[in-house]
Simulated assay, not measured.
Amino acid sequence: MGQLHSAPSSYDKMISMPLVDNIGATLKADLDVTKMNKYLHEYIQQEVSLAKIGDKMKQLNQKGTLVSLQIKKSMRFSHMYLSSKKENLIDGAVIIFDRAPLNVGGGYDTASGKFTCKDDGLYFFTWTTLSNPKTDFTSALFVNGNGIAENIVDNDETSDAMTGSSSAIFQMRKGDVAWIGVVGTEGMYIRHTWTKGIPASVFTGFKID
């Protein structure tokens, strides 16, 4: 048997194959392998592409896992509320929201009522207070003792309870401390709920950047 001979082209259209018959005479057969080579070429290309896609997916999965871990590590989110009414609060008193169903990152302390910044960044704070009928209530967000935003429930002339809300965005550094405090003498009484025990006086803070 001899070697295969082919003419150069994109898929080697024809090959010449030496043959030997039963009496030893040399014969030659020309075979058209265009389709076979084309299919073989496409199959190899497909397998190479699938291998590359598989490697790329592994890389993306590894990067995605890393990003997910980084997000979880840097996440800071706290949501607190009062579990009971507060009375006889004096000017400057810290309003201690003593229940924290969400405290991702552990920044809020339910004993002191203060949020301690764990990472430098931009933080968003919002809080709502519920006053008694015909009772005002004034509070403010403090960071390191400095007043940032005030919340006034002007309710001295209505016969129903009333809520007031306020929000602020503040650039904080690691170790900074934020809390909600009473302002003046119009903050002696704050309700924790109005109906069915649903929290009405709440405090939320989280890192946004």
Rank of each mutant, 00 (worst) to 15 (best):
Y39F: 09
A7K: 14
T34D: 10
M75C: 02
A100V: 03
S112P: 12
V33Y: 08
Y108S: 04
R76Q: 05
S9W: 07
G64E: 08
N61A: 10
L66A: 01
T116P: 01
M75G: 04
R76N: 03
I44V: 00
D119C: 05
S68W: 07
L19G: 11
L50N: 14
Y39V: 01
K35N: 06
L89H: 07
G54V: 01
K13W: 08
P18A: 07
A93D: 15
P8R: 12
A51N: 13
S9N: 05
I71K: 01
I53P: 05
N22D: 04
P18M: 06
A111E: 13
F77V: 03
V104Y: 04
A93K: 12
K56I: 00
K72T: 00
G113C: 12
V48G: 03
T110G: 10
R76K: 06
K28G: 03
F115E: 02
S68K: 08
Q70C: 02
Y11G: 02
D98T: 14
K38S: 06
L122S: 14
L89Q: 12
R99V: 09
T116C: 01
P18T: 11
T34L: 07
L82T: 11
N37R: 07
Q45A: 11
R76H: 06
T110E: 10
M36G: 08
K38L: 04
A111Q: 12
F124I: 03
K118Q: 13
L102Q: 06
F97Y: 14
L31I: 11
L19I: 06
I96M: 15
G105Y: 02
R76T: 04
V20E: 07
D120S: 08
N88I: 14
G64Q: 13
L69T: 03
M14V: 15
F124G: 02
S112L: 08
K38E: 09
T65D: 12
Y81I: 07
E47I: 04
N37C: 02
G107W: 02
K73Q: 07
M80N: 10
H41W: 07
K72L: 03
L27S: 01
S6A: 15
L50Y: 13
A29H: 11
P18V: 12
G24L: 10
M80K: 04
K85Y: 14
M75D: 01
K114H: 04
L27G: 00
L19Y: 05
L19N: 07
V67H: 10
Y11K: 02
T110R: 08
M57Y: 06
S9E: 12
S74E: 10
A29C: 09
A93N: 14
I71P: 00
L66G: 00
D55L: 14
G113A: 13
I95G: 04
F115P: 01
H79E: 10
D91L: 08
V104I: 13
D91A: 13
G106S: 05
I90S: 13
K118D: 08
